[in-house]
Nucleic acid binder design. Structure first.
Lengths: 133, 133
DNA sequence: TCGATCTGCTTGCAAGTGCAAGCGGCTTGC
DNA sequence: GCAAGCCGCTTGCACTTGCAAGCAGATCGA
């Protein structure tokens, strides 16, 4: 399977994993210990030299407390809008694991973020994409 | 030969794939053509002799019109109880009107809310470090 | 009966994953 | 000084994924 990596997905998982590991204040060996994945391999994955399998990604997701889906999407093995085409609002409202108050709070935050990220209607050029590290 | 496989996960995907292929009335070569996966490999996967990667599973899911998550769960690379949280996270990730930073922030808040609203803490995995503001 | 064309299956082999062992560099304590 | 403890990184190798090529059997029309 030669075709892969639209827009640097391999590096993307690596960057994301590195960022999350730093945020959790874990060394490579600590994370390796937590996940059962060897530390040299983690090193290579973070630098984009290797493509971790879904099993490894799952272990990493658990240890770093991020959603496995997020990792899969960044690894390019899960399509975000494949069956996630429903809106954020509907998904939140339908989520049984959230209290009603938290649903409302989440939707408020969502609306606020959307307003912030929305490009100015006046500006002719539309830059919805952005790079930021 | 048969190495790992906790609880027959490999055979499980194979059985499921065979069933779905039969239901779709497709031959091995037809499905191979649709997915870009070779037919001998599909044959081995269906009989549990090989463990398909997530990429292959994704292609199969598309061609057979079943959810990729279902396949991942059966392949043992996704936890079933994560499925409930799937829709919100995917919807957020798929939302083009949010910046990457805001997506992450929103997901963090969502995860935090979920933890607060959770009825009972599961005592399955060890909690490594809990930094919470 | 022969050939064409299906069905699924077996077999090497290239490419890739993941790890044990070991490397050099940096801090700490003796 | 110099051992002990971290940190991340490199290398060589076992094992797996996935495919091209080819196999035997079934079914069709000529």
């Amino acid at each position: 399977m030669a075709k892969l990596d639209v827009g640097g997905t391999v590096g993307s998982v690596g960057d994301y994993l590195l960022e999350q590991r730093r945020q959790a204040k874990l060394s490579l060996r600590q994370l390796a210990d937590l996940t059962g994945v060897s530390n040299p391999y983690l090193s290579q994955v973070e630098r984009g030299l290797r493509r971790p399998s879904a099993e490894v990604l799952q272990q990493l997701a658990k240890a770093l407390r991020v959603s496995a889906e997020t990792l899969y999407v960044r690894a390019g093995i899960l399509d975000p809008d494949e069956d996630g085409s429903r809106s954020v609002e509907l998904a939140v409202l339908a989520d049984p694991s959230l209290s009603e108050r938290h649903k409302q709070a989440l939707l408020d935050i969502y609306a606020s973020f959307r307003r912030e990220d929305a490009p100015e209607p006046k500006t002719s050029t539309d830059p919805p994409e952005e790079e930021l590290a």
